[in-house]
């Protein structure tokens, strides 16, 4: 009896193993999906950040698109030029010019510059505060609750005195911040040089209304547009034509920057060595560390 039971058990397991292996083996052949060899090699070259900066869900998706659908090889913003070259080598194509994409925050108002700020007791999120009127006077500018800073996987964006500020040293240009900003004031722009000229304001109201809500916002006077053809006035807001922008700014353009009464035409990007020398004597304000001390911290851990 016992031996028969043992034999039957072993036999059942063995039969199942044989049958299931046969079925799975057959299915493996029958349902085989041809994966492009090149897609596999491209995945190895890509950074693997899965940030979605290229517009695909992850690096794998992008690699497949490159291999099968002849997607452009230079879409990876994290990998930049070197990655594009490596992918191009695998695909056997020439790589075009890859400009690093970086975010520009189109707002320049710190807390002191913003007028009409009111007490806000809701969720400390931009997405929530954006639904409420009168959090601050300006309905276009940065809210300063840091949704973008939370969205950043690379610690490259921080809220400094109420204004989202990009750390261009760390930024890889994945564009996560631009996606979450409820006011759409962050644009992802191809940087033709380390520093780019930008209009750091998004307010499209008439000049008089802007003055009532902001100390620094663009009033749409059009002085820049009159001085240089690089600027155009769109909806009471100065706009830069980045297609026509060249890294070596003409005197005309620099002149326009000086003419701006609100000094909204500023260069953003990595600091140059000159800038660093200038600020070396200045004392940086001490970082305020958040104080999360609770009673739990004082107790000794005996886990």
């Amino acid at each position: 009896m016992t031996w028969v039971t043992i034999g039957l058990s072993a036999g059942t397991m063995l039969t199942m193993a044989v049958v299931l292996t046969a079925i799975l083996g057959w299915a493996n052949k029958k349902f085989q999906v041809d994966v492009d060899e090149r897609a596999l090699t491209i995945i190895n070259v890509l950074p693997g950040a899965n940030c979605g900066g290229c517009g695909y869900v992850g690096c794998g998706e992008y690699a497949e698109a490159v291999a099968l659908e002849h997607e452009a090889v230079n879409k990876c913003t994290v990998g930049g030029q070197s990655c594009a070259l490596a992918v191009a080598a695998i695909m056997g194509v020439e790589v075009g010019e890859t400009l690093p994409y970086r975010p520009i925050v189109h707002c320049g108002a710190h807390y002191n510059d913003r007028l009409g700020r009111n007490e806000y007791r809701g969720e400390m999120r931009c997405s929530a505060a954006n639904l409420v009127t009168d959090v601050q006077g300006c309905t276009f500018g940065c809210l300063g609750f840091g949704d973008c800073a939370r969205a950043c996987d690379f610690d490259a964006l921080h809220v400094v005195d109420g204004l989202a500020t990009v750390d261009y040293e760390k930024c890889v240009g994945c564009g996560a911040c631009a996606k979450v900003c409820p006011r759409n004031i962050i644009t992802i722009t191809p940087f033709k040089s380390e520093q780019m000229l930008a209009v750091t304001c998004s307010n499209k109201d008439k000049g008089k209304d802007v003055i009532t809500v902001c100390n620094v916002g663009c009033i749409g006077c059009g002085a820049c547009a009159r001085t240089s053809s690089l600027f155009t006035l769109k909806d009471n807001l100065s706009t830069i034509d980045y297609d026509a922008y060249s890294p070596t700014c003409s005197l005309e353009v620099l002149d326009a920057c000086k003419k701006c009464k609100r000094q909204r035409l500023v260069f953003v990007g990595k600091p140059t060595t000159d800038d660093l020398e200038k600020t070396v004597d200045m004392e940086a304000p001490a970082l305020i560390e958040p104080d999360f001390k609770t009673t739990v911290d004082d107790t000794e851990w005996r886990g």
Partner: peptide
């Protein structure tokens, strides 16, 4: 009187794992 009830767990896991594998292949293809 033969009773193979002791095998239930291992055989269920076995069949679940292989059916998942099969379903994955099928879905991937079609």
């Amino acid at each position: 009187g033969i009773d193979l009830t002791i095998l239930t767990y291992i055989i269920y896991i076995f069949s679940i794992a292989s059916s998942v594998q099969f379903v994955e292949m099928y879905v991937r293809k079609f």
